[in-house]
């Protein structure tokens, strides 16, 4: 049985088809590893290096956030992380991230469907360009979107007569976060659609289902775990995003100021305690999202395994 493994690429997104994982080989290798003694050298060296490097670059620095925060008294901590300006930034960051992730879920499913099911000129180019937001530096995305959506920009000039303001408003934040999160849903749903056996849709059709019925009741339940994973990945990425947002946001306190920017502002005022306290709140949210994403990915794998 050969299934396309949900190989996760550099951005935490399962990628289709790049590496085919043979389940049988894996389990055979696993079994033989358990039975035999360690034949291969280098276990101590490689694991030791991995743990030391991981600790030095990631774990110890991250623990600094919590150690610093622990030096605050509880009331002082609560005061900092629930200040009105900070609360407004949470509402903006989480609200805009949620809306952007929802837009990406709907259009990501559409784009994945079109790329997998239909053939049209330029399809492979479009497929390759979907990853652009991963490869394009966020600052470049930020200045480009701002230039486009200001009242005299290409797109802004079309929207202004309709009374829609994008640049320097919360809507602008959402536009930037939509750009940043665009590939996640496409790249999680795409491999699942590719692996979907055509027979089950044929079966639905023979049993009298219309195309819409069989999409809604046959295809959709199968892609749902992947869709939710993509949504969670896009949402998690959007929460921490900084570079693409600050140009288009306008950064007005209480209106269009995102939480990562508040951390930077506090740092620039040498308010280490304030910056760290807010950072620890964001880190906890990120960790919770990471756990949720891991659980969703396990669910996706089980769903796919059951079908294959």
């Amino acid at each position: 049985m050969v299934t396309t493994g949900l190989v996760v690429n550099g951005h935490g997104v399962p990628r289709s088809g790049a590496f085919v994982v043979d389940d049988a080989t894996t389990s055979r290798a696993d079994r033989s590893r358990r039975k035999r003694k360690r034949v291969l050298p280098g276990f101590g060296l490689s694991l030791g290096y991995t743990i030391v490097y991981l600790s030095l670059i990631v774990l110890i620095p991250l623990s600094a956030v919590f150690i610093r925060t622990a030096q605050l008294t509880w009331p002082a901590f609560v005061d900092i992380v629930t200040a009105p300006r900070v609360m407004a930034s949470y509402r903006l960051t989480f609200g805009a991230s949620l809306s952007a992730a929802l837009v990406n879920t709907a259009f990501g499913l559409l784009v994945a469907w079109v790329l997998v099911r239909y053939r049209f000129p330029g399809r492979r180019l479009v497929d390759a360009l979907v990853d652009l937001p991963f490869a394009l530096p966020t600052a470049v995305a930020g200045v480009a979107l701002t230039g486009l959506f200001t009242p005299n920009g290409w797109i802004g000039a079309l929207l202004t007569p309709m009374g829609i303001k994008v640049a320097f408003t919360p809507l602008g934040v959402m536009v930037a976060l939509t750009f940043i999160g665009l590939p996640f849903v496409v790249r999680t749903v795409q491999p699942v659609l590719e692996e979907l056996p055509r027979e089950i849709e044929e079966a639905a059709a023979t049993l009298g289902a219309t195309r819409w019925d069989s999409f809604r009741r046959v295809v959709f339940p199968v892609v749902l775990p992947a869709l939710l994973t993509g949504f969670a990945l896009a949402f998690a990425r959007a929460i921490g995003e900084y570079g693409s947002v600050i140009f288009i946001a306008g950064n007005m306190p209480m209106v269009s100021e995102i939480t990562p920017l508040i951390i930077i502002t506090k740092l620039e005022q040498y308010d280490y305690a304030g910056a760290t306290a807010i950072a620890s709140v964001m880190l906890v949210v990120s960790f919770l999202l990471l756990l949720a994403i891991n659980a969703l990915q396990a669910w996706t794998r089980r769903r796919q395994g059951a079908l294959a």
């Binding site: 990631v58 110890i60 600094a64 610093r68 960790f287 990471l290």
Partner: peptide
């Protein structure tokens, strides 16, 4: 260990910079 290796992807870039300021900055460790 695999989850910990993935951690930097779920951390905001701003916090990735902040942690080093907390360690090596003027008021840092």
């Amino acid at each position: 260990l695999i989850t910990l290796i993935d951690l930097p992807f779920s951390v905001s870039p701003v916090i990735a910079g902040l942690v080093y300021v907390l360690i090596f900055g003027l008021q840092g460790w």
